[in-house]
Every structure is written in structure tokens, then in C-alpha cells.
Amino acid sequence: MSGSLLEVRDLVQVHRLRGARGGSQTLRAVDGVSFEIGPGESVGLVGESGCGKSSLARALVQLPRPTEGEVRFRDQDLCRLRGGALLRARLGMQMVFQDPHSSVNPRMSVANIVAEPLRLRGGTGRRQVRARVRELLDMVRLPASRYEARRAGELSGGECQRVAVARALAGSPELLICDEAVSALDVSVQAQLLNLFEELRSELGLAYLFISHDLAVVRHMSDRVLFMYLGRICEEIDAGDLDRAPRHPYTAALMSLVPGTQRDRSVMALTGEPPSAASIPAGCRFHTRCWCARDQCATQEPALVATEQGGRVACLFPLAPQPEPVGDPLLSYRPPGP
């Protein structure tokens, strides 16, 4: 327990929405989530829209505060802290968001953006701040001489995202939460950013919570992957086991949908659309879309239990490990059938 950097226990986030026709709806965006991230570990979080992953990310940093649960960062429960204590305790966790242009104040210069966390913390002289800014820009491969003075509004998406990362690193955080950080970028720029994240991980020993809907990217970036569905974790699995041994039908189905995969996706077709968190199905949340649901699934909600591979799964009838796919899926091409 004390070895982990971040420990989340029974986190619940409830949103109250005003319905379209009056009245209010209660949305349990995060409905009891527990997991851990160790120092230097990269954990992926995957899910479709409405699964609550963004709500989870925001709840971790207390913006806004979760309704229930514990978020222990460096052994301090952020949910119980207030004001200055919270600000200080939270400094070790930084976020990188999806929209690069919205993540940086378009009217500020790059140097000021990156320097802001340093200035807010105080205690650093002007020369030191400047030096640190240069160091950070260097870390994200943005030559300081060319970028320092430019206004963020003039930069491209990839450049903005690098500035956002540099700013996030300013306070030497230990955990970087990337909420779809590369999803809005062109593929070639995305690859550059992913490489950057890996470099930073090895250079600085950063831990990551990498949130994305793109399984190919998550599989590449993470040590472990959490799959969320309707506010709960349905599977936690080692990234290396993703291809061969997904235990939860949802995981298997999502893996089959990764372009270029060998798996016959017609077998694992997910029926219907992702339901809304406002109306959660009875029994297993996933059973309405499950391709191998049985009667029991409609009445009994599975608990998250440990698996032999060291992961966790919430399924009454978890899948058995599957045979290894042969060769490079992309090269040994198989036309899909409708």
C-alpha cells in the first residue's frame, strides 16, 4: 500500500444535471473505482464516451471534488484537504489535456506559460526561472531561442501540446495524467508526442495515467491497462496480456476493433450503443451489449476479482486466454467481412 504513488479507493463522482424538460437527473459518472499507480508506472485507462474516464481524471485532481472516496497521493488523502494544503499536496500531479489550443492561454508567451508554476510557487529568482524555462523547453524539444517569446495562440497543435507538457513538468511532478493528450493531433505528430512521453518517462521516472479511447496507443504506452464501462472498472490487465488474454468480453471486443487486428470482430460485435450513465442496466452493466451474455448476467452484478495473470476482472463468466495471433497483423492482411 505505502509503495504506491497514487491510491484510489471507492471513488464516486455524481453529476447532477438539469434535464432537458425540467427536473434533474443524477449521473453516477464514476461509480466506485479503486486502483493504484506505483512510482514510474504507466497505467492506461480506456473506455468509450460516457464511461466516466474524464470525470475520473478531474476527480483525481479534485476539480471538482469527488462525491465519495479517497484519493491518496503520496499517502495524503486529497479529498480531505482544503485550500493551501490541497494546492501543495496536489502539485505532484499534473494534467495534459486533449485540446492543445485550449490548454494554453493563447495570449501568453511560451516563456510565461512555462514559468507560471515556478512563479506561483515562489522562492525562485528571475534568473533561475529563466534557466529552468529553457531547460524545460529543451526537454520537450522546443528550441528556446525560437519559442520563448512567441505567443501560444500562434503555435500549431503539436507545439502547443509540447508547451503544455513543459508547463506540466515545471514543478517536477511525479504523476502525469494525460487525458486524450494525443487524440486531437495528426498521426505523425502524435507519434512524436508519444516518443516524447516515453523519453520523459525514462529520463525523469514519471508515472503516467494515460487516458485514451485509442487502444493501439494505450497498449503501446502502458504497463497496465484499466478498462472502464459506465463508471466502473471492468478489467485491469497487464498490457502484454492484451492481445492474448483479455478476460472481459468488453476488452476482447475493443481489442478486436483495433484496425489491423487479426481477430474476427464479427463474433465479438457489440450490440447497440453505449448507454448513458443516467440509466445503468441492472445486473452486469455490460450485459445489454455483451456478445456472450447469459441469463444470470441480467440479474447479478459481478464484483471485481483478481485473475491468475495478476489483473482484475468484473465478469461472471470471464473469457479464457486465446491463441497467440501469428505475424504482423498489418502485413498478413485479412479482408474483413461485413
Binding site: 493501439a216 503501446h220 498490457a239 497483423p329
Partner: peptide, 20 residues
Amino acid sequence: GLLDSVPRGSQARHSRLVTM
């Protein structure tokens, strides 16, 4: 380059993507 930018299952995880 486009093909290489997408992480593939056959690639080692955490390996460096070939970028342009």
C-alpha cells in the same frame, strides 16, 4: 512514415516509434 506512426501490435511496447 504514416504507417510507422501508428503503434502496432507487433512492435515492442514502449519502443520508440519511427517518426517523421
